[in-house]
Every structure is written in structure tokens, then in C-alpha cells.
Nucleic acid binder design. Structure first.
Lengths: 234, 234
DNA sequence: CAAAAATATATCGTATACAAATATTGACGT
DNA sequence: ACGTCAATATTTGTATACGATATATTTTTG
């Protein structure tokens, strides 16, 4: 009666694809053929399909019948919905954490921030990893509430936010983000609900603003080619 | 390029199972063998598995490797998590609806309440259907916000709440519930955020209390037997 | 007679094969 | 030269077959 004798190969595929999408290694609207992925991982389409289904439910991939799976390409409206829901959920997270969070929990958050610092100031500016870490900070917070349901939803919206940022934001200026994380933890430490919530709201607002202000950077093939033909004509 | 030429057979299975679970036709912890279900619906295990996977993600069924799928049997802790998250989400729903809801939206809510009344006062007291309708009222509200993400999460927690009520509440006293629904709509009509939220919170609190106050009616075999051995020893 | 081992059965996990649907490409006629 | 239509080829949707694993039953042994 061991816990996990078989590490579930579909989970491996799922997590790999998830990271690849979040870190923008797989661009939005990119096709995800089952055969190709299966060959790559050495598994059959059955396994790949499970992973893709999960990703679809979480909003990271979209599938149309007989068209297969594609990396999701959220519209601005969807993006707004995700951000709005995320704010709602994270307010609850902060509220709960201020109410009761263990010292270990705060330490875990500090440790995570330290890791974010390390990656940011590290030898090479690892943008994708930085985005992922920034998101995981919020997931860690949600898990510290002890509410599994809440944590799952936060994890989902954070993933989707990462994808949205990957689309709509040119570069992830994580400098301010890390600092805001620090300030949120400080407010929680001070048992200051209002401050923590306000900082969190501002933080998410800043993230959202960064997304909303930029134009869609991955337009249709036609548009791209138009630009290039213009260049060659010039 | 028609919308849905094939109504997706897995969706049929999914919805049937979902309703059966929510209406307590399928009891918690009941086994759900893939073959049996497949034979019943005239589809292969592949289809059934898709439906079961979806239900698992939504928390309505649980599966352990090589043990197959069972109807979920949430613990009290899970139940609390679900209720807490639901409150958080529905507060947001109410807030958004008060901000801006169309007349059509309010009409839809009225119509739904009327339907609840009809079923409640109908010839036969249709308990299961009453539970389902009560839940769907909240889903309709969430959908009226226009936020798809929010609506999906609300739909999920409402489903799970229905299941929880099915377990922990002996009978669904829907009389008060319908009236509370009416009062919530009234508060929204009056643009009274505070009142609407307060009623909603009280409503969910009442639902939760009804669940939390009852002891687990189907505990472990050991626990039951312990109680009985104690009794015989006394 | 009780307990433990061994077998049998049922159910699940995965791969693969076949059918259906669609996008693409080439041919053809205007 | 361009638009339309048909054939091909790729990809998904579904079913089924096979192997693995857990549970139930039976048999054996102390």
C-alpha cells in the first residue's frame, strides 16, 4: 500500500507542458499534436491526451473538435475575467493568512522571496524562470492557508495569469514584483489585514495594467508577413 | 463549420453522472466501474473515462490507482474548505451583480425562483430536484456576472456543496432557501450591496450550519463497531 | 478450526488499430 | 491569372485488446 509506486507518466507530460507554456517556450496558439508530443516523451497518445485534457480544463490549452489542441491564447476579455477572479481569491488568501499563519509559513515565504532574488540577480537574467517563481509565490501563499480548494483555484488563475503576461507583456519586470512580495509578507507579519490586502490589490493591479496596456504581440501570420514585406520594399 | 454537429457523447455521460451524484441517486463512496457505466450508456470505456476524469477534477468523484472511481465522500474538512471558498466567490458575484445587472438578468432570476416554487409546492415533493434547482440558482447568478472564470468556479463549488449536503444533511429543507433567494434578488434590485452580501453570507452560513451540525452519518466501520462494543460493555 | 498462502477473477492502465473529419495541395476550367 | 473543386494526407475520435494489479475465494497447513 505504498503512496505512489508509479509516478504517473501522464503527470510528467502534464507538468512538462505546463512549464513550457508558462515559460513561453511554447507560444500561444501553437499546435500541440498528440503524436509529436507522444513520440517526444516516449508515451502513447492516450497519455498525452490525458495531460492535454487537464491543461484544457485549467485554461492553458484550447481544443476544437478535430482541430486538436493548441496553446491557449486568451482574449483581453478572458484575461480581465482571470485577473478579477484572481483578485477575489487572493484577497481571501491574505485575509486568512493574517488571521492565522504559522512561523514556519512565514519562513517559507521568506525563503521563496530569497530564491526570487537569487534568480533575478543571478549571472544570467532568467526571465521565464522569474515569471514562474513570481507565480509560485502566490501559490505558496494559497497553500499556507490550508484550504485545498482555494489553493487549487489560486494555482489555476496564477498559471493563466502567467500565460497572459507571457502574451501581453513584452518583458517581465520582476524587480518591483519581488519587492511587493516582500511588502505583502511584512504586512502579514504585522497582522495588518488592510495593508496586506491593499498591497496585494495594488500588486495585482500593476500586473494587470502591464498586460492591458500592450497590444497583442502575437498577431496573425498575415500581419507579420505584411511587416516584413514592407521592410523589404523599403 | 456548424457549432456542434456531434453532441459529444462523453458530455452526455458526464452530465448524467453529475446529476445522479448531486441528486444522491448515486451514494457517496459508491463504486463506479467503467465497464458497467459504458454498457449502460452504450459507449466504450474510453468515453466513460473522460467523463470520470472531469468529475474527478471537479471533486465529485475520487479515484485511486487500480481501485477505480468512486463517488466522492468529502470529509468535514474538505466540506469546510468548499464552503469557505464558495462564500468568497459568491460575495464577489453579488458585488458584481449589484454593480451592473441587466433587467433581463433579474427576470431570469425571478423565473428561476418561480420554478423553485413550482417544484417545492408541486404534487410530489421532489427533494433531489429541489436540491439541484437551489444550486442552479447560484450558478445562474454567477453566469449573469459575465465572468466566465468566476462562473465556472461557482458552478464547481455549488456542485460539491450539493454533494456535501446530500451526505451531511438528512433532508433538504428548501423552504427557507427559496425565500432567501428571493431576498437576495430583492437586495440586488435595490442596489444594496451590503444587504445582498449579508443575506448571501447568512444564506450560505445556514446551509453550512445544517451540514456541520450533523455528525458524519457514514463513518468508518471500525468507529461504528467501537461505539457498539462500548455500548455492550456498559 | 483458524490463519495464511495461493489461485482466480475482476477491474484498471496503456497501447494500438481503425474510422471520421478536416486542412492542404494540386488540377482544372473559366 | 484566378477561383473552384476534388484528392490526398494528416490528425483527431473511438473502440478494443493486452498486460498489470488489487481484491475475493479457495485451498492448504499448523
Amino acid at each position: 500500500m505504498s503512496g505512489n509506486p508509479v509516478p504517473k507518466r501522464s503527470d510528467t507530460v502534464y507538468q512538462s507542458l505546463r512549464r513550457a507554456i508558462i515559460e513561453q517556450a511554447l507560444h500561444p496558439a501553437m499546435r500541440l499534436p498528440e503524436d509529436t508530443i507522444g513520440e517526444q516523451f516516449g508515451v502513447s497518445r492516450t497519455i498525452v491526451r490525458q495531460a492535454l485534457n487537464r491543461l484544457q480544463m485549467e485554461g492553458l490549452v484550447e481544443t476544437r473538435p478535430h482541430h486538436g489542441a493548441h496553446v491557449a491564447k486568451p482574449t483581453l476579455e478572458e484575461a480581465r475575467d482571470v485577473f478579477e477572479t484572481r483578485r477575489c481569491l487572493e484577497r481571501e488568501v491574505v485575509r486568512k493568512l493574517v488571521e492565522r499563519v504559522s512561523v514556519n509559513g512565514l519562513d517559507a515565504l521568506d525563503a521563496h522571496i530569497a530564491q526570487e532574488d537569487r534568480v533575478r540577480d543571478g549571472p544570467r537574467r532568467d526571465g521565464p524562470r522569474s515569471i514562474r517563481l513570481a507565480g509560485e509565490f502566490h501559490v505558496v501563499m494559497a497553500e499556507l492557508t490550508g484550504n485545498k480548494v482555494l489553493a487549487r483555484y489560486v494555482s489555476e488563475v496564477v498559471s493563466r495569469c502567467s500565460l497572459i503576461l507571457a502574451i501581453y507583456s513584452q518583458r517581465h519586470s520582476s524587480d518591483c514584483a519581488v519587492d511587493e512580495h516582500r511588502r505583502i509578507v511584512q504586512a502579514i507579519r504585522d497582522n495588518d489585514v488592510a495593508a496586506a490586502m491593499q498591497i496585494m490589490d495594488a500588486h495585482l493591479g500593476a500586473v494587470e495594467a502591464r498586460a492591458a496596456l500592450v497590444e497583442d504581440p502575437s498577431p496573425d501570420l498575415k500581419t507579420v508577413l505584411n511587416r516584413y514585406t514592407e521592410e523589404s520594399a523599403r
